[in-house]
């Protein structure tokens, strides 16, 4: 009879050769390779302090007839540690999702079970196809002071563990970062940069549930960020940029009334508009001036161009 046998790392394992007597002559193989007699105690196979590498197929054959008497697949692993669980609403007020992972691998299959209770009501957490370790819950009630209690239980052949999160609806609201962040120099304004962005596409109803934004920017030559909070609108003009210095800019979003700030958006780079240098002959100058006037609308050469004509963060 062949089956899977799970054992903990470090355990001592004894395998009997099916129904064979203790003193019967047998041969044991591991993944097809004969096992040294030193591991045998009569017809029993003894594996001391097993480790992951000893996972594999173990077979026992009757001495003379080489008749297969026993076969098992040994899987060495660990019981699950307390899983790490996180719940968040990036599409408020539609709902929230919970995702989880194990802090350390168990090397054997695990099964996860999640329960979501709101007051006395059990709520369904619909598993997402991808990623596997995630499910989402539809918010049936808004503005509730009753806490949500999410319990994730992980089980495998060697043990079981669980973790519980208790939170208020308003505490887990965290939008995704703003999208399509664009930063452009402002012609004839050596100290300005015009930044614009869009609400994260995952945020369902920005009109009823407006977001506010946090912009941070700094010249690459400095470490210190400058910040500005914007309670509405999805654009801002930086007016205190150092002339000619390349800037790195990011934006974060938050529901105007509740929850926490999103992660920072993808960083975009831009350098304020700079005057073209005037040092060639008159004719050259004229040609120069003409080309200068068109180039000023292009991102200055020093700027890293992610996209033609402007710098976009998606």
């Amino acid at each position: 009879d062949s089956h899977i046998q799970y054992e903990r790392v470090g355990a001592d394992v004894t395998m009997k050769c099916g129904s064979m007597d203790w003193d019967a002559a047998v041969t044991w193989t591991a993944n097809g390779t004969d096992i040294d007699e030193s591991h045998l105690n009569g017809s029993y196979l003894i594996l001391k302090n097993v480790d992951l590498s000893q996972s594999g197929q173990y077979s026992c054959y009757e001495g003379s007839s080489w008749h297969l008497k026993y076969q098992t697949y040994l899987r060495v692993g660990t019981p699950p540690k307390e899983p790490v669980l996180m719940c968040r609403s990036n599409n408020y007020p539609k709902g929230f999702y919970c995702s989880w992972h194990l802090p350390t691998p168990t090397y054997i299959p695990n099964s996860f079970n999640i329960s979501v209770i709101h007051g006395t009501k059990d709520m369904v957490c619909e598993k997402d196809a991808v990623p596997k370790n995630r499910c989402h819950i539809r918010l049936l009630q808004l503005f509730s002071t009753v806490k949500y209690k999410v319990t994730l239980t992980v089980t495998n052949a060697l043990g079981k563990n669980f973790t519980t999160l208790t939170f208020d609806e308003f505490a887990i609201v965290k939008p995704d970062p703003p999208e399509s962040v664009v930063a452009k120099p402002v012609p004839n304004n050596p100290r300005r940069l015009e930044v614009s962005w869009q609400n994260p596409s995952s945020w369902p109803d920005p009109e009823s549930f407006p977001l506010k934004f946090f912009l941070r920017y700094r010249p690459l030559i400095l470490d210190q960020w400058q910040h500005v909070e914007l309670s509405d609108g999805t654009s801002h003009t930086i007016t205190d940029a150092y002339a000619g210095k390349e800037y790195i800019i990011q934006v974060a979003a938050k529901d105007t009334d509740i929850g926490t700030w999103s992660d920072w958006s993808v960083a975009v780079h831009a350098t304020p508009w700079t005057e073209e240098p005037k040092h060639l002959t008159t004719e050259a100058q004229i040609t120069e001036t003409t080309s200068a006037s068109t180039s000023s609308f292009m991102a200055p050469p020093t700027t890293k161009i992610c996209d033609k004509g402007a710098v976009v963060g998606s």
Partner: peptide, 8 residues
């Protein structure tokens, strides 16, 4: 209670 269903 502030909690409400079908608020929208």
């Amino acid at each position: 209670l502030a909690a409400v269903e079908r608020w929208d």
